[in-house]
Amino acid sequence: MKNKVFETIIHGVFLILGLITVGCVLLITVYLIISGIPAISKIGLFEFLFGTKWASTDAEPSYGILPFILTSIYGTAGAILLGVPVGFLTAVYLAKIAPAKIRTIVSNAVSLLAGIPSVVYGLVGMLVLIPGIRTLFDIPDGASLLAAIIVLAIMILPSIINVSITALEAVPKEYEDASLALGATPVETYFRVSVPAAKSGIAAAVVLGVGRAIGEAMAVMMVAGNVANMPSLFQSVRFLTTAVASEMSYSSGLQRQALFSIALVLFLFIMLINATLNFFLKRNKEE
């Protein structure tokens, strides 16, 4: 009897440990909604989301976050445009063609890339990319959307490469053998049989990259210049993430509440991306 009670208690303890994860998600969601709603209701949802002017410290402050939303979308799209082709082709090379030795070296390089702290990317970006863009395009300041896009493209490479490799390796060998037996060359087989067969997994890799890019804060803060402009490739811009980070330390009142609302908007974006990611991962598993 005593034993049974003891076992039940232990069971309960493990159950609680398991539920902590769920609790954390609820905590984050509830806190973001509670702290994000007041400013939106004060400013007005439409004005907040589609206002084109962010001037939180003016005498007559205006809180429109359209510039941040668009910058985040453009920046992410740019990073995907640059990063996905490179990451995808590297993944096919590593998964299918590369000799074992080269594969080990490149995979180690990729995992190093994944481990580099984002502030180090920011630092290198500040001292290499920004001056480079300034002289190359002859503009007064190199801190721009372009610099952020390049940094983000590099930062999402590991996610794209690793997830794509996993997907490509899961393609049944029979598919490839059949294609080879029909007379296709290996390279043709990889791109016309293996890649289509792994398309859900590769889509998941892209979506994961989108999530990483839209959520990155510090590296972007160091290279994008942080002026609340509407996005333009060679202008200083502010992302959703950096909008929160750059004003948090000195904000107060409605301005601070508005920052929480920006975080809520970012959170909704991320939840949408997560749902898409799960959709593709699930489909990949079913295939």
Binding site: C24, I28, L32, G215, E216, A217, A245, L266, N274, L277
Partner: peptide
């Protein structure tokens, strides 16, 4: 949790 950005 693993998808939420660190700034959040």
């Amino acid at each position: 949790l693993s998808g939420i950005p660190s700034i959040i």
